[in-house]
């Protein structure tokens, strides 16, 4: 029993110390990066994000909501645009309705004909095995068609959708 208590106390102390170290390192890193991080207006994010793929940028916006399934996604909004921010750790629900500056890594989802073909094959396969119902199957098929139509209309061979992978944030008062 004494051994067990000793191990637990040591584990809690170790966890406490390592947590503090991480916090301090993050604050220090933040100070160093603050000046060099490019800022993008949320309204121009989709236009400019292509120049910063896999790089850290800062974006201002209001947190519309935090995903209720796990809390690891949030939607940043403004009058002109919105942006999904994803994280490995859970966002606090208290952020909802707050204006924040989020620093994150720009990620690109590139959709081209190969992506559409793969998506179509997966959709047909999962429908055949009964994993997806008729309405979900139809919805996905329509989505694929929309991607193809958009590429045709814009006369491009791919579409790019951008999101932000969370690094840090500041709440703006």
């Amino acid at each position: 029993m004494k051994k067990l208590l000793f191990i637990l106390t040591a584990a809690i102390m170790f966890a406490g110390c390592s947590g503090q170290q991480k916090k301090d390192a993050t604050a220090e890193e933040k100070n160093q990066k603050e000046e060099s991080t490019p800022k993008i207006e949320l309204a121009n994010f989709n236009e400019k994000a292509g120049n910063y793929v896999d790089e850290i940028v800062a974006v201002n916006g209001i947190v519309d909501h935090v995903c209720k399934h796990g809390g690891k996604k949030l939607l940043l909004v403004s009058d002109e645009a919105d942006l999904h921010v994803t994280s490995d750790e859970r966002f606090s629900d208290d952020l909802m309705g707050s204006e924040v500056e989020v620093e994150g890594i720009v990620r690109e989802l590139r959709i081209d004909e190969a992506y559409c073909i793969k998506m179509e094959e997966d959709n047909i396969a999962s429908h055949k095995t009964g994993e997806t119902d008729e309405s979900l199957y139809e919805r996905k098929q329509r989505q694929i068609e929309q991607y193809r139509d958009s590429m045709k209309t814009a006369n491009v061979d791919h579409l790019s959708f951008y999101s932000l992978e969370y690094v840090a944030h500041n709440t703006i008062k």
């Binding site: 209001i62 519309d64 909004v77 403004s78 009058d79 909802m96 309705g97 707050s98 204006e99």
Partner: peptide, 14 residues
């Protein structure tokens, strides 16, 4: 807290 306009005819107030 804050507000914004998701479209021309709607205001969302937080």
């Amino acid at each position: 807290k804050k507000h914004y306009y998701p479209d021309k005819s709607t205001i969302k107030i937080f």
